[in-house]
Design a protein around this nucleic acid. Sequence first.
DNA 1: TTGTAAGCGTTATCAC
DNA 2: GTGATAACGCTTACAA
Lengths: 343, 343
Amino acid sequence: MTQKPTTNIRELASKLNISVTTVSRVLNGKARQYRISRKTEKEVRDAAREFGYFPNQFARGLKLDKSDTLGVIVPDISNPFFAEIVMSIEQESKNNGYSVLIGNSGEDTDQEKTLINHFISKKVDGIVIAPVGISSEHIERRFLSGIPFVIVDRTFPGLNIPTITSDNYGGAYTATLHLLENNHHKIACIQGLNESQPNIERVRGYTDAMRSYNIPEEDLIITGDRFSIESGYKQAHQLLKGKPRPTAFFALNNLIALGILRAVTEFSLSIPEDISLISFDEQTYSAFLNTPMTTIEQNKQEIGKIAVEKLIMQMDKKEMDSQLFLHVQTKLLKRQSIKNLKE
Amino acid sequence: MTQKPTTNIRELASKLNISVTTVSRVLNGKARQYRISRKTEKEVRDAAREFGYFPNQFARGLKLDKSDTLGVIVPDISNPFFAEIVMSIEQESKNNGYSVLIGNSGEDTDQEKTLINHFISKKVDGIVIAPVGISSEHIERRFLSGIPFVIVDRTFPGLNIPTITSDNYGGAYTATLHLLENNHHKIACIQGLNESQPNIERVRGYTDAMRSYNIPEEDLIITGDRFSIESGYKQAHQLLKGKPRPTAFFALNNLIALGILRAVTEFSLSIPEDISLISFDEQTYSAFLNTPMTTIEQNKQEIGKIAVEKLIMQMDKKEMDSQLFLHVQTKLLKRQSIKNLKE
DNA sequence: TTGTAAGCGTTATCAC
DNA sequence: GTGATAACGCTTACAA
C-alpha cells in the first residue's frame, strides 16, 4: 500500500483554475517552450510545493514507457568487490536521475535469468550486470530484443555487448612479474571460477609472465571451482601438503586469498617467511592483516561509474557507442607479503 | 526505453476471441473464483506463454496502487555489515514476490531524506532503513503519513516504528566480561558514531560490565566521530601514544577494529602479546588475520530476514504488530586476539 | 498563451 | 461462465 495520493495533477489544476496541460508543462520544465507566463509558472510551482504534489510514476511510466530505473545484478553482494561496484553504480545513477533495482544472483545462472526477466517486467530502462559468467545466451537474447545492457567484470568473448572490466591480463602479468623479480619460480596460480573470463585472462597474464622468464607453469595452475574462500582453502591446502611446496601463491581474487590465508595458518606457516602471497583485488582489510598483503588494486568506483555512463548513452542514443570494450587500469600495491628469495 | 510491448492483454484476448476480463482473471489466479472453464483457462495460459506476455507493471500499479517493490536504505553499502543485510533483504523480498530498490545515504541525513522522498515518489510499498542515526523526524513524519517502515540497526529511543537490531547491550556486555575474565582492567572502549543508538547501547553494556567488576571506566570510553577506519585509527593512535597504555581495546564495530589494527601495526606492537583486541561484528576476514580476531558476531542474515517479514506484515495488515522492537542475539567468537594477563 | 480530450494497459464493477 | 466498460493519473496532439 503506497501513500494515499494527496493530490493529483487534476486537483492541482482545478485549485489554480487552469488546465492540467499547463500544470504538466510547467512541472516538466516546458514552460518556456510553450511560452507560459511567468506568473502562471510561479503559481504552479508554488502550489505544487505547497500541496506536496509529485507526479504519479505509474501514470507517467504508462504514458512514456520508461521508469527512470536501472537494474543491477551481481553474483554476490556480500563480496565487498561487488558491494563497492554497486555503491558506485547507485551513486552515478542517482546523479543522473535514475533509481536502481538490485538483484543478487548468488552465482547461479538460473537465478540470474529470473532476475533479468523480473527486471524487464518491472520495466527497467536498462541493466548493468556482473554475470555469473558461465553462459550468456539469455543476456544476448534480451539485448538483441532491445533491452540496453552493460556487462561488468565477467565478460564473454565474442559477445557484442558493451563491457567494462579491469585490465585482468595486465594486472595478472604485473603481479606475476613482481613475484618473478623477487626471484620466485615456483609460483602457484590459484584459480576461482575457471571458465569465467576474468579468471581466464588472469591466467593468461600469469602464463605470459612465466614464459617471459622461461619457466614452465603447467602444473602450477591450480583448478578452482568458484570464487570463494572454500575453493581457495581447498586448493592451497592440497598444495601445502605436497612436496616440494611452491614458494609463492598468486590468488586470483580476494576470497581465494582469504582461503589461502586460512590454509597457511593451519599449516603454521607464516607469510612471507615460509610462503609469499599476492592477491588480485585490494580490500579495505588488505593493509591491516598482520602481514599487510601485496595486491592488485581494481578501480571499482571507476568501473561502476563508466558502466552507468555507457548504459545511459545506450538508452539515450538507442545506438551503440564505438568503444565497446573498456579496460580499467589496475595498480600494484606493494606491501609485505612477498619475500625476495635472493636476499 | 523499455522493451516494445510485444503483446498486451487486449491483443491476447482478441487472438483467443475472448474478453480481456477473462484473460485478466485467469492470469491473476481467479479462474476458480469466477468459475471459468478449464478449457478456457488452459488456452489463456498457453497463449500467454507462447506470446511471452506479461502484464504491464505501470498499468497494474496505476490501477492497484502498489508496486510490489520495497526500498532499502543503508548508510554505507561498502561496509560488509550492511552489504550482508542488503543481501538478506533482497533474498527474502524475492521469496515474497517483491523487488528492491537500493539507496546509499553515505552516512548523510540529507541524502537519506532525499532517498526516502524519491522512493515514495517511486511508489515503493514499504521501506527498510538503516538510518544514519542522528535524527528521525523525517522518517517519523513519513511513517505517520502511512508509509510502512522498518528500521534496522540504528534505532531511535522512543520512536514507535518497528525496529530490528542486534542485542547491542548484551553483546557488548559479553565482550567486556570476556576481557575482564582474562584479567584486563584497563579496557579502552573505542566508539564510532557516539550519538547513534547501537553505539550508546554498546557503551552501556561495556559500562555495566566494568561496574560489575568495580572498575572505574570514565576515562576509558573514547570518543569517535563515525563508524570508519579513520576514526578508529585516530583514537587508537592517540591512546597508544599515551602512558600507561590500556591493555585491551574494545572496538565498537568492524571498521573501528580495522583502524585500531592499523595503529597497532604502526607502533610495531603485536596482538595479543602487547595489546588485546575484541571487535563488535564478525567479518569474513576476522578469522584469517594473522592473529585471528575475537569478535561479537551479529546475525545479519536474520536481521534482514525479520525486517522484511515485519515490513510485509505491516503492509498487509495495515496495522502494527505487537512486537515492535526486536533484538537478534549475538555470539562471542573466541579466537586468539586476547591474552590472559594472569598466565 | 492555454485548454480539451484521447490513450497508455490493467483491473473491478456491474450486467447478462 | 463470460463480457463491456469505467477508472487509475499522466502526457501530448490538436484546437482555439
